[in-house]
């Protein structure tokens, strides 16, 4: 309680309100979000599409749309999807790829994000199936290592989705506005 943080006058202290809700982790919320902010610089993503002769903006957006479908059919958390997209962007920032492996990168990214965050991650076979067996097990597993090496085995990547939820809760944004904001994200 004596962490020395102050809330501007006239603003209600959201963490104070949720003090007794153990699942809001109010005691650590402020620090955790500060920590996320500090970590943002570790994961720079630039306009890598300019360096990818074989991949275009629209291909990335088709890939992400497909990943949203995967998220729905596997019933994954939103954080898993956002983490997977981050993983792709980080990988493509550092590696030039050809379009035929784009979907492999995408599904492997979901595969990794699931292992990190989901309670019961789907199996390799599930991922091969959703790619219509375009890739084999060996390719997926070696892509997993490639991606992990590229991003330095660090998956503590700050996610826009977490910030949005935090802002919405603190600002008591109504469900409609939040849904709109989610859509924009």
């Amino acid at each position: 309680e004596s962490s020395g943080r102050t809330v501007p006058e006239g603003v209600t202290d959201f963490d104070k309100e949720t003090e007794n809700d153990p699942f809001a982790v109010a005691e650590y919320a402020e620090e955790i979000f500060q920590y996320y902010k500090n970590r943002e610089d570790i994961f720079p993503i630039d306009k890598y599409i300019d360096r990818q002769p074989d991949v275009s903006k629209s291909m990335r957006s088709i890939l992400v749309d497909w990943m949203v479908e995967v998220q729905e059919s596997f019933e994954l958390n939103h954080e898993t999807l956002y983490l997977a997209v981050k993983i792709i962007d980080l990988y493509l920032t550092k590696n030039v790829i050809t379009r035929d492996v784009l979907q492999l990168v995408g599904s492997t990214a979901i595969f990794i994000a699931c292992k990190f965050d989901e309670r019961i991650p789907p199996y390799v076979d599930d991922f091969l199936y959703i790619c219509d067996d375009a890739y084999n097990r060996k390719e997926l597993i070696s892509m997993e290592i490639k991606i992990l090496k590229t991003i330095g085995y660090d998956l503590g990547i700050p996610l826009s989705y977490r910030f949005l939820r935090r802002y919405a809760r603190c600002g008591k944004v109504c469900m409609e506005d939040l849904t709109l904001a989610r859509y924009i994200l």
Binding site: K115, Y123, V124, I145, L148, Y153, D154, L155, G156
Partner: peptide, 22 residues
């Protein structure tokens, strides 16, 4: 150990590595 017929990096190992890196 990483076997070809396995699930790749075990999720417990993946989490341990990532969290210790962090």
């Amino acid at each position: 150990r990483l076997d070809d017929d396995d699930e790749g990096v075990p999720s417990s190992a993946l989490r341990e590595i990532c969290l210790l890196k962090e």
